[in-house]
Design a protein around this nucleic acid. Sequence first.
DNA 1: GGCTTTTTGTTTAGGAGCGGCACAAAGTCA
DNA 2: TGACTTTGTGCCGCTCCTAAACAAAAAGCC
Lengths: 411, 411
Amino acid sequence: MSNPSTTRPGPGPGRRPAPDRGRTLLGPALRLIHTGRTPTRSALTTALEVTRATAGAVAGELAALGLVTVDEHPIGTGRGRPSHRLGLAPDGPVVLAAQVHFDMLSVALAGLGGELGEAVYLPLPAATDPEPILATIAAAGAALVRAQRRRCLGAALALPNPVREPDGTAPAALHFGWPGGTPVVQLFADAIAAQDLGPRGRVPLPTAVANDANLAALAEHRHGAGRDARHLLLVTSGHRGVGGALVVDGRLHTGSAGLALEVGHLTVDPLGRPCPCGNRGCLNVETDPEALFSAAGRAVDPSRPLLDQARELARDPSARAAVDTVVDRLALGLAGLANILNPDRIVLSGLHQDLLAAAPTRLPELVARHSLWGRCDQVPVVAAEVCHAGLVGAAEFAWEPYLRDPQAVAG
Amino acid sequence: MSNPSTTRPGPGPGRRPAPDRGRTLLGPALRLIHTGRTPTRSALTTALEVTRATAGAVAGELAALGLVTVDEHPIGTGRGRPSHRLGLAPDGPVVLAAQVHFDMLSVALAGLGGELGEAVYLPLPAATDPEPILATIAAAGAALVRAQRRRCLGAALALPNPVREPDGTAPAALHFGWPGGTPVVQLFADAIAAQDLGPRGRVPLPTAVANDANLAALAEHRHGAGRDARHLLLVTSGHRGVGGALVVDGRLHTGSAGLALEVGHLTVDPLGRPCPCGNRGCLNVETDPEALFSAAGRAVDPSRPLLDQARELARDPSARAAVDTVVDRLALGLAGLANILNPDRIVLSGLHQDLLAAAPTRLPELVARHSLWGRCDQVPVVAAEVCHAGLVGAAEFAWEPYLRDPQAVAG
DNA sequence: GGCTTTTTGTTTAGGAGCGGCACAAAGTCA
DNA sequence: TGACTTTGTGCCGCTCCTAAACAAAAAGCC
């Protein structure tokens, strides 16, 4: 042999089936079927811009991998030979999707297609250290997989705080007190590995952890209000503070260290409320649930979740003035983001979704007025559509390697 | 024939040489050589992760296209058979790069490799309507091409204002009074077409127009301070106002309508100077040349270019306090952008470059202190390195189709 | 200086992936 | 019933790449 060190050890002769180039059509084809855009092989032909022969072969291969089914009965749409609908195999493999919420945990199985199985909700364990929480999630997930006797291909977890790349730590403290720097990616991988869910026993499942806003954006982009948007900005207000996420050309923009779209400290009211960051009038403190209550001069019922109360208040006509105040601040923040990111569409979730419902014309108009983009085009500000977007997004994240290379399902 | 309407009319049988997939290695290989990363065929082998056979074939094909040369003499680097350096053909084809500046025009020819030919500077014509300006540029470019007897493959123009996509208009008025909505892309294409520079006579040259900050970012990313950065943020202050640009994974992020990175209206001083946009303390008015003069309490000499004077003032030790004030505002703006975009690196140009030189530790420290990213990692804030970055970036833009598919050079 | 070792470049054979084409299948329309 | 339209498939060939062997050009060792 001449010198094997520089000759790449390919898996046999022929065209390279390398990480990203071999079988270039299989991934795009599965992605199209997954997002419900190509009901038939004929639609695949046009969407992928290939010949019918190739589209047929690709569909056949996806079916052979157990991912796609070809409907028995044809669907008649006018003239010509009728097509057979391409569907996702109902008994195909699944992934584990999990989410850490403010006050609970949720876990579900998900096949392709963006539909979740029934979600399991768990209270936070008494010890809110990382290990017991992640162990609880992994155990619940393993129970689901075993009970439903499905093949599990991966797991992903949505966390309510940023996840730093590439080391996989949570840089800021979670609200229930995990220290900054907690290696959440590794801990979750360990928790899943301990459940021994690998397809052939000892092979550890691929796992991933990401911020919940990012995953929600992914879910909305693939299956919700962000479909067909090239650049999608999602802004959400949860229990406390504001989260953002950006999808660029179908892929999450998480920045160089996973810390992009930390939009909470945009200044939206120079004379506003003080923010822990030291400034005044940050988006975080001006458009979160507390800000709405403060603007309305109402008291919070400490016995009920703050976010739920705030969403009710946003729908309360008697709080109109307060809603408008907060909407104005939000619009300024969104306009600032629009000037920087110029997305196709802005999707609002959480409390912001209710603020949009309460001010369906005022909010987009203000965004348009305060952004260069808005002075050129209509600015589509829309409400989120996906239920359990965090879980659905986690499922997307876990499926991602297989959407890139469906043949990995066979490995 | 069965039905040619759905069967794509490919250019002959065989593996598809379609827009983006045919000859997948040729483009990446040329790009590596173009950015000076692969001096030899052996380096191509490792960079492209292909076999030596393939790298050799690719290099040979690029040489056959007249783009790449293989050095006569080997370069000895230790043991083994020495390599021959891969260079860019000195007599290869060129593109036309042009820029509209505040008070003049510039035009240059550029081959691959990021080096400009000698630039020609032209005063603005008496009539500052779009047509005469663009005609002046096209005529000067055509004269260069003819004088140097080079084959010209395309032309690109850098403009000091945003270019709206997909219609190719300038949404805001240029400072010398072009009306908003001017179809600059079409007008430039017409001006170039009128010069009849096509390789075989009547074929019009491909042309492009883009914002100068965007093009500068492209230039810095490929050939300057942004090399090896995955996500690069460039911020620049020109004669008036602030421009920004973002390169994501090697490609410009211009947003859905080309209006991204309009960073000038970030609030950086809630009680600051009024901005034409209606707010106070926008980055535009707080960190532009006038702001520095205002902070220093100095008078501007109306007989000299404002930007030049401001850059001198930034270097003047006696203006220390004023510089620090403006630096503080700039740092706040950069931190805001870092929180949203989380780039790998921030490159400063124009006046901001001098502000960084005047406050080489204060500025990065403040950016770090006010951004989540800065609290996790070092924030590299660096000065621009490319001379005539607008022209170099325009050349990159014009070369882009050929870097994607080098075989287009032959067409 | 001859030998081996190391690294680079080239030649040859062959395989994977996809297009073109012809044909078959399954419906609608007149 | 037959013409037409649209969808799906089998076969062949082309292109782009890999693997493997060979050739070339240096350094290192004796």
